[in-house]
Each structure stands twice: as structure tokens, then as C-alpha cells.
Design a protein around this nucleic acid. Sequence first.
DNA 1: TTGAAAGCGCTAACAG
DNA 2: CTGTTAGCGCTTTCAA
Lengths: 333, 333
Amino acid sequence: MSTIKDIARETGLGLATISSYLNGGNVRPQNKILIQEAIEKLDYQRNDIARSLKTAKTNTIGVIIPQIDDAYFSKVVATISSSLYEHAYSMLVVDFGLDIKREKQAVEFLCSKQVSGIIDMPSNLTTRHLDRAMNQKVPIVLFDRAMPGKDLPVVKSDNFLAIDLAVDHLVRNGHRHIGFISGNQKIETAREREAAYYKALAKRGIKKKTSYVHRCDYVQQDSAAESAHKIIESNPEITALIASNMITMMGALQAFNEMDLRIPGEMSFVGFDDVRFAKAYNPQLTIIEQPIETIARQSVEILLREIEHKEKQEDLIKIYEPRLVEGKSVRKL
Amino acid sequence: MSTIKDIARETGLGLATISSYLNGGNVRPQNKILIQEAIEKLDYQRNDIARSLKTAKTNTIGVIIPQIDDAYFSKVVATISSSLYEHAYSMLVVDFGLDIKREKQAVEFLCSKQVSGIIDMPSNLTTRHLDRAMNQKVPIVLFDRAMPGKDLPVVKSDNFLAIDLAVDHLVRNGHRHIGFISGNQKIETAREREAAYYKALAKRGIKKKTSYVHRCDYVQQDSAAESAHKIIESNPEITALIASNMITMMGALQAFNEMDLRIPGEMSFVGFDDVRFAKAYNPQLTIIEQPIETIARQSVEILLREIEHKEKQEDLIKIYEPRLVEGKSVRKL
DNA sequence: TTGAAAGCGCTAACAG
DNA sequence: CTGTTAGCGCTTTCAA
């Protein structure tokens, strides 16, 4: 592995000249050629570790995620990755499998690695796991999750609108007995969507019934399927079911299969997030689609702005609107 | 940000003692306490960049992947990530969107970052993009893809068996007109599976018909759907279709929807890879399941062994067996 | 424009 | 067991 010393020796020039050339500085044309030749001859490639040590910049962003192995999160990561790539940043991914301890470890790990910034999709209700990063002034953007009073920028979609759209669509089609698969209330997304469900019913004068709602772990398809079973079996009058994220959608469909329930004949259904899946399913599913790419890109933009211009943006919270994509999984009563 | 100098000053000890403590060396108990207190007081955390520069080890593995945003690859990445985590390694992910130029850039980028090793899922037929890494003696493991003569370890699943299982199952159920959605022949997986299809037919004395096979890009669902349309529309006698990866499965189902074709009534179907999806689909799908976790874990094991023990393993190729998971998407004729 | 020299934070001899 | 010192490969003053 050759270093700039080698190429300095090879060319007879000084270290600073080489470094200057490498970083686009002013170098006499004939020396440029000389250096370029030496670089090719010695197969030189810059050592970014050494560079990072000196400049105290890694141009690497840490992404903390509950689980990559999930259509929603993997789409998020993919978008963040390509957006980062366009800005010449790299991405260090840590998934913590919803384990709070590991989430904290992840932050400390990333700080040790001197990441330039962190995008975090927190699974719990505090920011304590972020303390170290905040102490070290590592810029952070929260994804899908607001932390009141912490003054961290947040990017998320409008969970109230999302569920309101779903309920509205069902009510317009004559449904009044609407089940709702919710999730672990430590996850803000789940909390807000459940609250949104109750609010949407109230707004339309429909009495809520707590047995219409069941909370799964929001992570495993089987857990979601179980919730669907419980809701439907203990409330046979239900004519429609809403899944409040990707996983619960899959779980609900699995449960329908297990119970041999036909959509939309015997049960109307509104799913969440995965358009490609919705298109492949038979019948095509009506779903709520979040603007994942927009949100993910935006999180990168905000983070990089803070890193590069040091412009701390006070109380920044960006909320994007989901939309309802109509399929054939809702029956008109 | 405090450094070991700060904590040396704070404790009155020398740098080496602090370093020794940090790395689990022998330090007098009373000094241990002293150091620990200083660490907490100054909120010290090790700078892994400096450490890596000195030790010439980053304990970071680069993962090069066509696209994270895909149920198969995201599962692979998730497993690699958690396996790496268990070994105290971190993961730098680069997805290159099937662009060969970017694949090469990815390798060079990772080399600059001084990764300890690379797991690559190549999309093209040469290893030229890996040249730089090979020159620098960065250990590499190939995923899903063999490179004859290059002496790089490979971990993959048995594509011939995979398709043979599918064909066998269909033939046993009386099908003889079997369509096959193939993919871009630059991708070894697609090449092998297509070859396997022809071989499996021949083995059972079924005459091949090239119009029964169509190659999509293997990446986009719409492209796969188009292939399904083509195959079925120009060969109405077909009674069954095989999808040769996750994406083609989704595309085929989308096409069935668009054509209003019922499974298994009007068309029998064997899909690929995603068990959770297969369970959620109605009817439950018969699919070929690859042992993704095993393969992913194995790729990590092999790579780390080479990194840590420097034991170059000659001509290592591990092939794992897929299995057929029976659902209800194949009709008995 | 170029070269010499200092130093980023850490580890690893080596000497004590 | 502990302190001193050199140096990983790079960038960055500062002079020339």
C-alpha cells in the first residue's frame, strides 16, 4: 500500500504538493502530470482514515434502525443511502432489533466511529440513548419520531391524516364497525396512529369500542396476525379492518388466510405502505402510502445542512402528507 | 471531546497506562479506579479513527449490494449486520443500483475507507471491479456468485436444485406447459436458474419452448410483470408459471391481477424466497425458499476467519440447499 | 507554487 | 506495572 510519501519520493516533490494536488489545489501543470503518473504507477489510493483523523471529519452518517429486514425500513435505508451517495457521504448502519440497550450502544458505537451525524428511528420514549451524541455535538435527525423539548429536528409523516384517510374511506363506503391493529405504545408511530383512529371515529360520530383495537408488537408478522384473529373473533360484527403499518398489514392478511376470510366480500381492508405489494395482491389492496422517499431525502438534507453549515435549526419539524391509494379491498356496504 | 491525554493529565498517569487500561491490560487496581473516575468525569470516549490509523484495522466490513430495497437483499443485509454485530464488527453498506460503474466505485470507496473486508454481490460477469481490493489484499467473499479461476470464496445456494424442485413439483401435479420468468443474464443467479429450468425439463422428457421463457431486468417489478404478460399471452396453453426470484414473483402476481387470472384455478404458480409474503398471500403460495440466513451468516464467518487468522482458503465454495414450501398455488391437473 | 515541520489521538515498543 | 517516545498517513500553517 503506497502513501503520499511514496509518491513524493517518486516525483521528487514535497508532501504538501501532493496533498494539494489530491485536493484540487494549485499545482504546476507539469507537476500534475508527474504526480498523476506516479499515482498510477504506484497504484496509490488515499487513506481516508488518516485524512479523517487530521480533518476531524469522516463524512459518514450513522443510521440507527429497528430492523432493516422490513419493507418500510429497507426502503427508508435505501433512499437515505442513495441520497447520501449523491452528497459523497457514506452510511454506517446499525440495527438494534428494538432492544433499548442496543439502541444506546449503537449511539455510543457510532460516536466512537466519529460519524459526522446520526439519523435515528427511536423505538422508545426518551432520548436518553442519544445523550452521548448530544454531548459530543454530533448532529442528529429524528425519523418518524418527535422528542418534545429536546430541540432535535424531526422528519415524519402525518399519522393523524394517514388514519383519518383510512377511516374516512371506510365510513364513506358505509362501514361503522371498524377494527384497528395497533402496536407497542412505546413507538410513537403506533401511539399516534391509535389516537388518530379514536379521533377519526369521534369526528364522525362513531362510538369507539376498545375491543376493536388490539396492540401487537409492531414488528413480527405473527404477532400482528394474532391481533387480527383476536379482534375479528371477539367482534364478529366487524366489517372492516385497518392495519396501521406494513407489518400489521402482512399479519392481517395472513390471519385472513388462516380464517379463510375473503376480501372484500367478508371483510374490507385498508393496509399500509407497500405499494408494490398492494399491486401484487389479489384483490389489489387499498392502502395508505407514506411519502417514504421524500421523508428519507429530507432527513438527509436537514442533517447535511446542519453538518456543513453548522446552522442549527431550532424546533424544526417537517411533517409530510400520506395519501390513500385505492385498490379493491374495500366493499361498499 | 476529551482524549487520553486529558485523562492522563487528570490522573497523573502516563499515556500507556491509560491505553493499557482501555485495552484490558494489566493496571494496578487503585489506578483502574482513578482512570475510570476520570473517564466518567471527562466523559471520555475512544476515538476509533485514531485507533484504526495506528493499528491499521477498522473492524468494518463493506457490503456491496445491488439494492437494499428488495425483500431478498434486505434480509441478507439484516442477517449480515446482526452477525457482524456479534463479532464486534460494523458494516458500511453501499448499494449501486446495478450500475457497473458504481459497483467499481463502491469497491474503491470502501478501500479508501480501509475496510477490513468486503462482501460483494456482483451484478456482472467479471471481477474487474474488485481489482483494487484484490491488489490491496482486502479479503473478499462473493455472495450468490462464483468467479471461476479467481480464487475468491463463494457462498451461494444451489440454483439448479431450486428450479428442479419447482419443476418437479409442477410436473408431479401434471403440468407440462410451464412458463419461466428469467432475468438479465449478466446476473449469475438468473443465468443458472434459466439453465436449470431447461435442464429440469429435459430430464423429464419435456420439450423446451423458448417462448415459454422471458427475461426481465430482474430488478423491477413492472419489468417482471411485463415478462409474465408476454409469456402467458403468447402461449395460452401454459398451465403453470415459475418465478425465479423475489421480484419476478411480485411481478408475476401483479400481472395475474392485471389479467384477472385466478391462482391456482386458471394458472398454477411457484414463487421465490419470501415466506412471510407467501403466507400472507391468498391463496398461500408455493415457493422455493433459500436458506438466506445460513448463507449470510456463513459469508460473515468465512470473511472474518480470513481476516483474523489470515487463513486464505483455497477454492472455497459453499452451496446451500433451498427447499420447496408448499402452499396452495399449484393445482393438480 | 512548493517544502519543511507540526500534529490529529492513538498504540506499541522499550526502558525502567 | 508504568512512563517515554516514535510514528500510523494525512493536512495545514508557515516560509521560502
